[in-house]
Write a protein that binds this DNA or RNA. Structure first.
Lengths: 207, 207
DNA sequence: ACTTGATTACACCGATCTGTGTAATTAATG
DNA sequence: CATTAATTACACAGATCGGTGTAATCAAGT
């Protein structure tokens, strides 16, 4: 039951915004009484915390080459953008919505962003990149930038644009990139041409 | 009076979030009656629209070289981040908060983001960049990425990281960059080292 | 059959929300 | 001074908010 509550809260919070969704709405959506919800979560704040904690997924370990892992991030991002329910990064959205007041929310958001950055950094170190720290930061900028842009534009091609930029940054750092489909910035699309139409249903909102 | 209402709404909406600020709060902050507020704005929605419209500033024309204008964007961004009240991009925040429900909000956000992209694109064309469209998109990713990262991390150095990445992208496109302070990604900082401490008061939140 | 624990329905609290109606007050204009 | 327009105070509407209290019901497990 607790899982069902959390999963419904996740869906509604992410889709409509945290402040926009009341506990009554969540309970009604599941078809349970509000009392039951409060038996599992003592307050909405704790439900919000659990929602964000549940979004804090670790990047799964992979045996693929580091470069493919890094660039694969942008492919997964693009699929995420194209999936139906995508609505940006839940952590960034939460901070944007709840303001700096809620320090706990900001803390978990920082932790998530930093974990992603460290994931990039470690892969870059494996590649022997000199300034792995700095380049990792730059890659997260491309990730979050494409997420923000897709949030407002509904244009999954933003992920491809980010990927092309990432390739350039990697090459510049001396990393050998597959080359194959690169052609520098050539494949990057013009955002005013492609947008709209979302694909499958999915759960969306990795980041 | 209308101006005063709008300016106060701007401050509160941006600082605390749109949903988090009631019309009573705005009126009380100014010291006027709620009735007066509603005499100037027929509904909160219209006040929100006016707030976002007021944030839609045009990038001021400049006679400086295109490269300096482009890179200067990130310097202004960094100053914005360091200013006290900075809380991310008001348009992205509004979309994140109000959801896809409110189509008018999303539309103005798209218009703003696109205007910024076109500003980059035109400068890149002046520089003779082949794929000005694509590179302009990539630059906006760095801008929005650094904004999102600073929003959660409170780390103005994200603007510098974005600037360094932008330099690499520009060089890769054949643009002559000042060189002086570049040194590739070398000056990029590690985010876990620098954060906190905000500067002057300002109005913050360009994007 | 009995107990235990979860869930239910439902009323209710105080607070806050957007928005309105109204009559008095104030300020500027002729 | 008289007219007009803006602003005021204030009560109020209807909705929703997060959260609680309570007694009945339901579903195991032993």
């Amino acid at each position: 039951m607790k899982a069902r509550i959390l999963e419904t809260a996740d869906l509604l919070f992410y889709q409509r915004g945290i402040r926009a969704v009341g506990v009554d709405t969540i309970a009604a959506e599941i078809g349970i009484s509000k009392r039951t919800l409060y038996n599992h979560f003592p307050s909405k704040d704790e439900l919000i915390a659990a929602y964000l904690a549940g979004r804090f997924t670790k990047a799964p370990p992979s045996d693929k080459p580091p470069v493919e892992q890094i660039l694969g991030t942008f492919d997964r991002l693009e699929r995420g953008f194209a999936s139906k329910g995508f609505r940006g990064c839940p952590f960034v959205n939460a901070v944007a919505e709840l303001g700096t007041e809620d320090q706990s929310v900001r803390k978990i958001a920082v932790a998530f962003k930093e974990s992603r950055r460290l994931w990039f950094r470690d892969l870059l170190k494996q590649l022997g990149v000199a300034d792995a720290e700095g380049l990792a930061t730059q890659l997260t900028l491309l990730v979050d930038g494409s997420i923000a842009q897709d949030l407002v534009r509904n244009d999954p091609s933003m992920a491809r644009a980010a990927k092309e930029a990432a390739k350039v940054l990697l090459k510049n750092a001396g990393v050998e990139v597959s080359g194959q489909e690169s052609a520098a910035t050539a494949t990057t699309t013009n955002p005013s041409s492609s947008p709209r139409t979302r694909g499958p249903i999915r759960r969306g909102g990795a980041a």
